[in-house]
């Protein structure tokens, strides 16, 4: 009972705090641009002037952001701030939502991914995705990993496919745990193993960018730690964009951090800078836990 009361008090406080800073943010946005360094010298993906609407409702307002090559960028922010929506725009997963419309420029290696002639199949082969809830196919572990290479025709012989599966599972740190039961169902694994299986599945098609949408929110701390280690290793070969609710996670795994607030990109900076000396009041309010 007491705890509940405290929580209520906390939310009340944050609501009070939120109002002035909210005004500031809007003012700031109207004035011009995101603080910090949203652009990068070595961008893998560049987004300019992005607006996203769900029907009448606007979810993302004028976001400019670069995702640098072989870096991990974390997107943080309170629930409903549009970070997941923004992430899903990067491989056009929002295309499946009928009411969703996206404007702005999305460049992946000088190529406009929203170009009318852009085929989403090769795009998604280049920009893979890992979801919030582990979602292995109800097939064997092997089939799960081999599915992507199969549909894209990456392996012509069985041996090649076997190798892709092994390499992917090794990269995902799952090989040792599952090598003896590759043909048992992927859904029989634990939550953390399932999520690593999903990561193995997406790296099996050797994408250039991996999008991760709160990949650890359904996992226990030990499984989370494993995934975080994995992300640090994967950085060598892939460019990663991760959405997370956990600021500690963002601080641990990312090189740059982007803070979203109510559909606007408030601040982008080196992770260290964001968590030690944030430029914007809103970012500071969020990372110090005053709301969110």
């Amino acid at each position: 009972m007491q705890a509940v009361n405290q929580n209520n008090a906390a939310t009340d406080d944050s609501a009070e705090l939120k109002l002035p800073s909210d005004d500031q943010a809007t003012q700031h946005k109207f004035d011009g641009k995101t603080v910090g360094h949203p652009l990068s010298d070595n961008p893998k993906m560049s987004m300019r002037n992005v607006n996203v609407f769900y029907g009448e409702k606007q979810a993302i307002f004028n976001v400019d952001l670069d995702i640098a090559q072989n870096q991990v960028i974390a997107m943080i922010g309170p629930s409903g701030c549009g970070k997941s929506t923004f992430l899903r725009c990067l491989n056009r997963m929002n295309d499946t939502i009928e009411s969703c419309s996206v404007t702005g420029e999305f460049i992946l290696d000088k190529q406009d991914i929203y170009h009318p002639k852009q085929d989403i199949v090769p795009l998604r082969a280049r920009v893979g995705m890992v979801f919030q809830k582990p979602n292995p196919f109800p097939k064997s572990i092997y089939e799960n990993v081999a599915y992507g290479p199969k549909i894209h025709g990456l392996a012509s012989r069985r041996a090649e496919l076997d190798e892709i599966v092994e390499v992917s599972l090794r990269k995902a740190g799952l090989w040792e745990e599952v090598k003896d039961r590759l043909h048992s169902p992927g859904t029989g694994l634990s939550g953390g193993q399932q999520q690593r299986l999903c990561i193995a599945r997406s790296i099996a098609v050797s994408p250039e960018v991996i999008l991760m949408d709160e990949p650890c929110s359904a996992l226990d701390p030990i499984a989370t730690a494993k995934i975080e280690e994995l992300i640090a290793e994967l950085k060598e070969n892939f460019t990663i964009a991760i959405v997370t609710h956990s600021m500690q996670q963002a601080a641990r795994v990312s090189d740059r951090t982007a803070y979203f607030h109510l559909g606007k990109l408030v601040e982008v900076n080196d992770t260290k800078r964001v968590f030690t000396n944030p430029e914007h009041d809103l970012t500071e309010a969020y990372i110090t836990g005053r709301f969110g």
């Binding site: 499946t96 979801f131 809830k133 196919f137 549909i151």
Partner: peptide, 19 residues
């Protein structure tokens, strides 16, 4: 989530439906 997983890997609509 299964559809998302398949679309996320770059499966076409027909592949998602049939597979």
């Amino acid at each position: 989530s299964i559809r998302d997983a398949a679309y996320g890997l770059g499966a076409s609509k027909m592949q998602v439906v049939i597979h």
